[in-house]
Design a binder for these strands. Structure first.
Length: 547
RNA sequence: GGCCUGUUGGUGAAGCGGUUAACACGUCGCCCUCUCAAGGCGAUAUUCAUGGGUCCAAGUCCCAUACAGGUCACCA
C-alpha cells in the first residue's frame, strides 16, 4: 500500500503497464523468424562500425523471414546532435539500406525514437515501484563520490549495491516526505541479485559465458525522467518483441544487468548475439575503429574516392561471415542476398579493418561491370568530385566507354580499376586537355639509341584499318628492320646483336602515347586515339625526348 | 584492481581430438605475353603466445603465466 502511494506520487499520470502489453502484442511470424533491430544513438551519421552491426541485424532478419527495425536511442540529452536522427536515416537511404519499421516509415510497435517513449518507460518504472522492486534514491553527486573513495580505500568492489546502497532501505514515508520537500532523486532498481551466484549468457556468436549475477542497484530512470540504456533496452526490446538482440560486444559485461531487468519485469528474455568490433592497428596497438580518428571509418571517405557502396557491403559481408568470401568466389554470379549468413561463422574476436582487402574486392567488382555502367557511374561521380573530368566526358560517352571496354568483354577481364577516380588515372593521357596540362610529360624518358625511326613507323607503316593481327605483324616487321629482335629467345641468346627486344620497341610507342610503360592493350589505345592525333603527339614526343 | 573475452604465416582468417594446418589479401620467383593488370605454376607457419597437464593421439580439452581488447556513470 505504501509502495503504491510512493509510485503514484512519483508518476501520477502514466498508464498502467498492462496497457502497453496489450497495445504491442506478440508478432505473428512463422517459426524461426527473427525480429532484430539496429539501435544507434543519433550521432548524425553512419560509419563502418554501425554499418557492420546493422548488416548482421538486417540480413539475419531478412533471410529468416522476420522483421528488422530501426530504433533511435536518444535518451542522453547531453549528447544530442543537431539533425542527428535525420543524418542517420539519410545515410542509410543513400546506401539503399532499408528497415521494415522505424522513425520514418512507422510501424505498429512505435514510436521508434526513445525520447518519444518516455511515458512507456515510466509506466514500467511505476510498476516496479509499486511492487517494491525499485526505489527513489536521493544520493547526491558528492555522496556517490565519497562512497566510491571509501570503496577504493577498502579495496571493495566499486558501485551502488548491498549495504553501500544507502537509500535502498529508506522507509517509504521518509522517501515520500523528501519528494514532497522537493529533494532531487532518481529511480534505482532494488537488485535481488547476489554477486556470488553465477549466471550464464548463452551468446549466439560467442557461446556460453559465465558471469557473476548483478547486485548493483542500477539507475533505471534518470533525473530528467528518461530511462538509462539498460532499462530502455529491456522495455523496448520486450515491447517491440525483439527475438534477437544483435549489438556490439562492449555490452557483454552488462548482460547480468539486462538479464535481471528482464526477470524483474516479468519479460521473456531475447537471444543475444554480441558482435566483435572492427579494429584498426595504430602503431603496435590494436583499437576499435574510431569514427572520429579514422578516415576509412566514414562512408563519405569511400564516396570521395569513388568506391561503390556495393563494395563496402561486400567487404562487410566478407568479414562478417568467414566463409562468405570463398562462397562468393565459387559463385561469381550470385549476390550477397543469395548467401546464408549464420552466427557460427561470425568472428568472436575483433576483425582488423583492411583497406587493401577492400580495394581488392573493389577491383573484382569493377571487372564484372559493363563499360557503359562504369561510364554512367563515373559521370555521376565526377560531376560531384571532379568537375574537370566531368566536362571532358559528359558529352561523349562513346570515347570513354570504348576505352573502358579494352580487355573487358573477355573471360578474365582487366582488374585495374578499383574506384571511379581510378578511371581518370588509367586513361588521362587519352584526353589532350589533361595531357597538355602536364608540364614535361616525358622528362624521365631516355633511350640509349636514336629513336627517330619511330616517325617512319607512324607515317609509313601504321594503318588504322588493320586488325590486331595485321597490326602486330607490321610492328614486328618494322621493328626487325630497324634492328630489334622479334623473338624473345633469340634476343635472350645474344642481346648485343640487337637494339632491343620487340617489347622495347613496343614500349617506345606505349610511352609516347601514355608516358608510362604500363597500359591496357596498345592496339586498342592507338586505334581509339586516332592516327592524326598520334602524329601530333609524336612531334611532342620526339622534341621532348631528344632534348 | 574486479569481471569478461581473445592470442593460428607479413595481414585477415578456416579449423570443433587423428588434415600435407584450408582459403583470401600481400610479398617473391618462374611461365605466358607488346607493357601492365589478369591468368597459370611455385615459394612464403616443421607449427598454432609461453609453460605444464589429460589422452594411444592436442592448434583443438584442462590449469597456470604473458600479452592484447572490452567493461566497471544519472553515456549509449
Amino acid at each position: 500500500m505504501e509502495y503504491k502511494e510512493l509510485a503514484d506520487l512519483i508518476f501520477p499520470n502514466v498508464k498502467d503497464a498492462s496497457y502497453y502489453e496489450e497495445k504491442y502484442p506478440e508478432r505473428d511470424l512463422k517459426e524461426g523468424a527473427m525480429v532484430t533491430r539496429f539501435a544507434p544513438s543519433p550521432t548524425g551519421f553512419v560509419h563502418m562500425g554501425s554499418l557492420y552491426t546493422s548488416f548482421s541485424a538486417i540480413t539475419l532478419a531478412r533471410q529468416s523471414g522476420g522483421v528488422v527495425y530501426l530504433r533511435i536511442e536518444d535518451t542522453d540529452q547531453k549528447r544530442e546532435v543537431e539533425n542527428g536522427v535525420e543524418g542517420i536515416i539519410n545515410d542509410f537511404n543513400n546506401l539503399k539500406i532499408y528497415f521494415d519499421e522505424g522513425p520514418t516509415q512507422g510501424g505498429n510497435y512505435g514510436p521508434y525514437i526513445q525520447s518519444e517513449r518516455r511515458d512507456i518507460y515510466q509506466s514500467f518504472a511505476k510498476k516496479l515501484l509499486e511492487e517494491g522492486k525499485a526505489y527513489p534514491c536521493f544520493a547526491t553527486e558528492e555522496e556517490l563520490k565519497n562512497l566510491r573513495e571509501m570503496q577504493e580505500l577498502n579495496k571493495e568492489r566499486i558501485g551502488y549495491y548491498g549495504s553501500w546502497a544507502k537509500y535502498r532501505n529508506l522507509p517509504v514515508e521518509e522517501a515520500i516526505n523528501k519528494i514532497k520537500n522537493g529533494e532531487d532523486y532518481i529511480i534505482r532498481l532494488k537488485s535481488p541479485g547476489d554477486f556470488n551466484n553465477k549466471i550464464i549468457l548463452d551468446d549466439c556468436i560467442k557461446g556460453k559465458i559465465e558471469m557473476p549475477e548483478n547486485d548493483m542497484d542500477i539507475v533505471i530512470i534518470k533525473s530528467d525522467g528518461l530511462p538509462t540504456y539498460h532499462f530502455a533496452h529491456a522495455v523496448d526490446d520486450h515491447l517491440m518483441r525483439t527475438t534477437h538482440v544483435i549489438r556490439g560486444d562492449e555490452w557483454v559485461s552488462s548482460y547480468p544487468i539486462h538479464k535481471q531487468l528482464f526477470e524483474v519485469l516479468g519479460f521473456r528474455e531475447p537471444k543475444y548475439a554480441h558482435i566483435a568490433p572492427l579494429t584498426i592497428k595504430e602503431g603496435t596497438t590494436i583499437r576499435k575503429l574510431s569514427k572520429r580518428k579514422d578516415k576509412e571509418s566514414a562512408i563519405s571517405f569511400y564516396n570521395k574516392i569513388g568506391v561503390p557502396d556495393e563494395v563496402i557491403k561486400l567487404y562487410i559481408a566478407t568479414i562478417n561471415n568467414s566463409s562468405f568470401e570463398e562462397w562468393y568466389i565459387a559463385n561469381p554470379d550470385k549476390t550477397i542476398d543469395d548467401y546464408e549468413f549464420t552466427f557460427d561463422k561470425m568472428p568472436i574476436g575483433g576483425s582488423l579493418f583492411d583497406l587493401d582487402k577492400l580495394m581488392s574486392i573493389s577491383k573484382v567488382y569493377f571487372s564484372k561491370l559493363t563499360a557503359q555502367d562504369i561510364y554512367k557511374r563515373t559521370l555521376e561521380y565526377s560531376k560531384e568530385y571532379d568537375q574537370e573530368f566531368y566536362e571532358l566526358i559528359k558529352d561523349d560517352s562513346n570515347y570513354l566507354t570504348s576505352l573502358l571496354n579494352i580487355e573487358r568483354n573477355i573471360e578474365r577481364p582487366r582488374m585495374d580499376i578499383g574506384s571511379y577516380s581510378d578511371v581518370k588515372k588509367e586513361f588521362w593521357y587519352m584526353f589532350d586537355t589533361l595531357f597538355t596540362k602536364v608540364d614535361k610529360p616525358y622528362q624521365d624518358v631516355s633511350y640509349p639509341y636514336d629513336i627517330t625511326f619511330i616517325r617512319d613507323y607512324f607515317t609509313k607503316v601504321y594503318n588504322e584499318e588493320d586488325n590486331e593481327e595485321e597490326w602486330f605483324n607490321k610492328v614486328k616487321d618494322f621493328a626487325s628492320s630497324v634492328g630489334f629482335a622479334i623473338n624473345r629467345k633469340e634476343y635472350k641468346e645474344d642481346p648485343t646483336k640487337f637494339l632491343g627486344n620487340i617489347a622495347d620497341f613496343c614500349s617506345i610507342i606505349r610511352v609516347m602515347l601514355t608516358t608510362s610503360n604500363m597500359s591496357p592493350n596498345m592496339y586498342d589505345l592507338l586505334k581509339i586515339y586516332g592516327k592524326d592525333k598520334l602524329l601530333q603527339r609524336l612531334d611532342i614526343f620526339l622534341k621532348d625526348v631528344n632534348n
